[in-house]
Amino acid sequence: MSSKFGYTKLDSGTVNLDNANFDVAKKVAQQERSFTYCIACGSCTATCSAGNFTEYNLRKIQLMVRRGEVEPLRETITRCMLCGKCQMVCPKGVSTRNVVLQISKLLKQPVAKEQLTDKLHPTDDRKI
């Protein structure tokens, strides 16, 4: 779009649930029922190995999936090291590792072969 005025209209940062895509949330819940147990206490994030060094926030990731905000997660979700500490602290018994795996699987974009080697975590193919 033209910016002959020196500025352009800002995009809205509002989460609009009228256009949201809940497919990922629904599929994750089908595959891992405990996904719906989360009460956003943040224990997982507090203990998370990745979360202590990166922006990775499992509490927020789960919430973003529920709100249909999945696009920003495609890269973020790969930062999980699947260590399982989150699962140990979760008071609701969420199978957090499987939640992460399911989200990764659903968000996995077709990646060209040459790019694969650059990927830090080809999440779906990992052996657990």
Partner: peptide, 12 residues
């Protein structure tokens, strides 16, 4: 605001 997400939210 979805205060846990830190974003304004709207819906109909």
């Amino acid at each position: 605001e979805d205060t846990l997400l830190g974003k304004p939210l709207k819906l109909t």
